[in-house]
Design a protein around this nucleic acid. Structure first.
Lengths: 338, 338
DNA sequence: CTGAAAGCGCTAACAG
DNA sequence: CTGTTAGCGCTTTCAG
C-alpha cells in the first residue's frame, strides 16, 4: 500500500505537505502541489479512509437503516428508488452509503451500536414501525438523522405529502361523480397508512359525506396478497350497499384488489373505480391500467441527502422540520364517471 | 468516545487484554473476560472499526458495484432483491455493505480507486455492461470479486441458469403445441440477453425448427417501454406469418408487449401465447397473468455472499467458477394449447 | 510556504 | 494468562 510517506519521498517534500495538498488546504505552493500530484499519480496513491477517519473522527459514511417488517425493505420498489437517488446525491458530496443492521461482527447488537461501530456521520431512517426502542435510541443519540418514512417528533423528515395526495385522489373521484367511496387503508401502524386514512376522513367530512364503517378495510402489510384479502372483506362487509369507488392506500394492494374484484365479476372501472397510491411500476400494466398518486421518490432521496449533509456539516436548514414532497395525480384507466 | 484504555482501566487490566477479549482470542481467563465485558457495558464501549481496520488492514466492508446503464441500478427489482439477500447474509458473517461509485470526496474517480479508498475486503459486481475498462481494472486488482450478472472469464460468478430457464420456457410452449415461436431478446450486450438468445437458437435446432429472422426482435434496455416497441416491430416484421407464441427475455418487456398486442386486438393467450423471464412482482397482476421463469434471487444473493466471503477468508470453494442457480417455470395464464 | 512530532484507537509480536 | 511496545496511515498543532 502506498502512503503519503511514499508520495512525499517521491515528490521531495514532507508527508505533512502531501496531506495538505490532498485536503486542498491553503499554504502549498503551486509548484509543490503539482509535484505531489504527479508523484501520487505515478505511485497510484489513494487516501486511506480508515486512517483519515481515525485522525479526524469523520468517516464520510452515511448509514441507511431499513426496517424489514411490513415488507418494507430494500427490495421494496418505493424504497429502492429513494435509496438510489439518496446514494447518488450523497456521492456528489463525497459521502458513501453503508447499510446499518443489527449485527456487530459475530454477535447481535443494536442499530445504535452498529452506527457507532462504523462511525457513520449520519443516518437515513427508512423504518416505518414507529417509535421502537431500537430506533428511538439512535434518534436520541448524537448521530444526525433524517427520516423518509416516519415523522418522529422533533426530527427532520422528508416524506410525501400524504394528505395532499389523498385529497387529489379523492377529489378526482368526487369530480367523477362518486359519493360512495371506500378506503382500503395501509397498515395503520405506518405513518403513510395513518395520514392517508385521516385525509380520507377529512375529505368525507369536508364534503358532508357520512363515514360508513363498512367502507373501510385495513391491511396488515404493504404487499399484494393483502389486496386480495381486503377486497374480499370489503365485498362481504358492504354487500348490501356497495361503494362505487375505492381509494386504496397502496398500488400493489390496489392492483391485487382490482384483480380480485374482476375475478368476482365486477367490471373496473364501469362497476367500480379504483385509485391507488405510489405509482409503482406495475400500475401501468394492469388491466385496466391504474389511476394513482405519484410519489416523487427522486426528490425524496435527494432532499433527504441534502438535509442530512447540511445537518452534518452544520449548515443552515431553510426548511421545515417536516418537509413534504408534493404528489401528483396520474390519470389512467381505472376510474369512470358515474 | 470510550476506548479500550478506558475499559482497561475500569476492568483493572491492560488494553491488550481488552483487545484480546473483544476478539475472542484464547488466553484470557474467564474472570478477566467477565470483568472486561462488564466494564465495557458500563462504559458503553463499542469497537472503532477505523482504528481496527488501520491496524489489521481488514475493513469488514463489502462493496457493491452497480452499473447504472440499461436501467439496471439498485432500483431495478431484480437487483434490489439480490442486494437484499446479499446484505443480510453478509451481515451474518460480520460484513457490512457499502455502495461503490465513481467518486472520491470532491472529485471524479474510478471504481477501483473508490474501492481502495474505502479498503473494501471484496466487491459484488452487478454490472451488466461487459468488459468495460473500469470494471476490468477492479477485476484485475487484488480485490476479491464475485459477479451476479456478467460472467467474466476466470472470475467467480453466481447467476441464474439462463439456458435452463429458457429451455423450460420453450419446452413448455412446445409441449402446448407451439412451433412458430418468436423471441423478444434482452439487450444482447448483456449476458442474460445473450444466453437466453442462444438457448432459443439451441432449442429450435434441437427440435428441427428452422430459425426465422422475422421472429426475432432485440431490445435496447431492460424496461417496459422496450416491450411496446418490440411488439410493434414483431408485428410488422412477421405480419404475413405471425408466430403463435413468444418467448420474451424479460418480464417487464413481456408485460408491455402483451398490453400492446391486446391493444392491437390480439387475444392473449388465445391468439398469442407469451412466456416471460424473471418473475418480477408485476407479472402476477397483468391480464392475463404472465407465465414466466422464476429466478431465485434470494439464492443468488446468498451464494454470492458465501462465495465472496470464502474467497476473502481464504476458504476452500467447492463450486464451479461459474455457479448457476436453477430457475423454475411458473405457469400462469398467458399461454394456451394450440 | 514547509516540516517535525504527537496522537487518533486498535492490534500484534514479544516478553514476562 | 497478562502486559509492554511499536506501529497502522493520516491529520494537526506548532515551529521554522
Amino acid at each position: 500500500m502506498v502512503t503519503i510517506y511514499d508520495v512525499a519521498k517521491e515528490a521531495g517534500c514532507s508527508p505533512t505537505t502531501v496531506s495538505k495538498a490532498f485536503n486542498n488546504y491553503s499554504g502549498v505552493s503551486d509548484a509543490t502541489f503539482k509535484k505531489i500530484m504527479e508523484a501520487a499519480d505515478k505511485l497510484g496513491y489513494t487516501v486511506n479512509t480508515n486512517a483519515r477517519a481515525l485522525a479526524t473522527k469523520k468517516t464520510w459514511l452515511l448509514g441507511v437503516l431499513f426496517s424489514e417488517d411490513v415488507n418494507t425493505g430494500i427490495a421494496h420498489p418505493h424504497f429502492s428508488e429513494i435509496l438510489q437517488s439518496f446514494q447518488v446525491r450523497a456521492g456528489e458530496y463525497g459521502y458513501d452509503v453503508v447499510f446499518v443492521n443489527k449485527r456487530l461482527g459475530n454477535r447481535e447488537a443494536s442499530y445504535l451500536e452498529h452506527c457507532k461501530y462504523r462511525g457513520v456521520d449520519g443516518v437515513l431512517l427508512a423504518a416505518n414501525k414507529m417509535f421502537t426502542d431500537e430506533i428511538q435510541s439512535v434518534l436520541s443519540s448524537e448521530i444526525k438523522c433524517v427520516s423518509v418514512e416516519t415523522n418522529y417528533p422533533n426530527q427532520h423528515t422528508v416524506i410525501s405529502d400524504n394528505r395532499m395526495g389523498s385529497l387529489q385522489a379523492l377529489e378526482y373521484l368526487y369530480f367523477l361523480g362518486h359519493r360512495k367511496i371506500a378506503h382500503i387503508a395501509c397498515p395503520l401502524t405506518s405513518v403513510a397508512g395513518q395520514e392517508r386514512y385521516s385525509a380520507y376522513k377529512e375529505f368525507l367530512k369536508s364534503k358532508g359525506i357520512e363515514e360508513n364503517p363498512k367502507y373501510l378495510v385495513e391491511t396488515n402489510a404493504f404487499k399484494a396478497e393483502e389486496g386480495i384479502a381486503a377486497a374480499t372483506q370489503l365485498l362481504q362487509q358492504a354487500w348490501d350497499d356497495l361503494p362505487t369507488a375505492i381509494y386504496c392506500g397502496y398500488d400493489e394492494i390496489a392492483c391485487a384488489a382490482m384483480t380480485t374484484f374482476r375475478a368476482q365479476g365486477f367490471r373496473v372501472p364501469e362497476d367500480l373505480s379504483i385509485v391507488g397510491f405510489d405509482n409503482v411500476a406495475i400500475s401501468g400494466f394492469t388491466t385496466p391500467t391504474l389511476t394513482t398518486i405519484e410519489q416523487d421518490r427522486g426528490a425524496i432521496g435527494r432532499n433527504a441527502a441534502d438535509t442530512l449533509i447540511k445537518m452534518i456539516e452544520g449548515k443552515e436548514l431553510n426548511q421545515p422540520l417536516d418537509m413534504r414532497i408534493p404528489t401528483k395525480l396520474i390519470v389512467r384507466n381505472s376510474c369512470a364517471r358515474i
